[in-house]
Design a protein around this nucleic acid. Structure first.
Lengths: 153, 153
DNA sequence: ACGCGCTTGTTTGTGTACAAACGATTTTCG
DNA sequence: CGAAAATCGTTTGTACACAAACAAGCGCGT
């Protein structure tokens, strides 16, 4: 038998646990992501980059030359999303694009001198943004949170 | 002094810590959110709801009648995003919309009978989706993760 | 009563996010 | 070798996400 206190709380209603929106991972992930995006925009400075543009430039800086799809995989963007991001970075002259001689389906992307300078200058802001996003947590909590978050991603 | 092994690794380069995209909260939050969205779509079933539509219906079910902006606040959507979500739910006949007699700026939203049935039927899926999203974590880890995540949101 | 500020809902414009379908290639395998 | 399968980049259509600007209405203080 159930204790009376619990039976009473269930009374006329069903036995299912309530669905509390504020407690769902999905909702919380969405809100945390929103907050991070706001912090990003506020702290990225005159570079005027979006999180995805920043990610693409960072990876391009790491890798030197890559195909468009490969860069998409490395930054977790699908091919269609990539189109827009690349288009805007090209329009601003931050990246270069040329056909791959080895594979005629591919294009090879790389940073321009401007793009290299801009991403080098923006890197410290990236760290500051991460820091501000985690501002509410202690060092130990940050490590714990990031390690759990990695296992969900 | 730094140990030689570390000095060697830094050699010609700068002393700044590398910016590793895969370790940044923003990137991890984005990926976790992507994964959750994929799970949601896969498990929501024939209800054919997006996460935001689901959230709006759940809150509407909790609150009974609310204005559009109020509902937006409760579900963390801005007014412009709200437009689209409400428009689609109206088109499917899941919610109702009428002017507020007390305040002619407002509209009052509520569930239709269809909307009520649909969200009641979809609720268990919501719990299953949350569960699947956290599948990699133990019970203790889930609690720890959610409590840290709440502090970031 | 009047004016000023705030809220409500809407529109427009930019930027993710992804499914689905496509043509052009390249690769794989029978 | 040659056909089927896989990959590359693109387009289209739907759905968030938010800034900015707007008209209409409410409410407060003087």
């Amino acid at each position: 038998m159930k204790p009376a206190a619990i039976a009473a709380r269930e009374d006329a209603s069903v036995a299912e646990p309530a669905y509390v929106l504020e407690d769902q991972v999905g909702h919380l992930l969405r809100r945390a992501h929103q907050r991070h995006a706001a912090i990003f925009q506020e702290m990225i400075g005159d570079a005027q980059l979006t999180p995805l543009q920043f990610a693409a430039l960072v990876k391009l800086n790491d890798l030197g030359e890559v195909s468009q799809n490969e860069l998409g995989r490395r930054t977790a963007m699908d091919a269609a999303t990539m189109q827009g991001v690349i288009k805007r970075l090209l329009a601003r002259g931050l990246i270069d694009r040329k056909p791959d001689p080895e594979d005629r389906r591919r294009v090879v992307l790389s940073l321009t001198a401007d793009g290299g300078r801009l991403i080098a200058a923006a890197m410290p802001n990236g760290h500051a943004i991460t820091d501000e996003t985690l501002a509410g947590l202690s060092d130990a909590e940050r490590r714990a949170f990031l390690s759990l978050l990695k296992r969900l991603a």
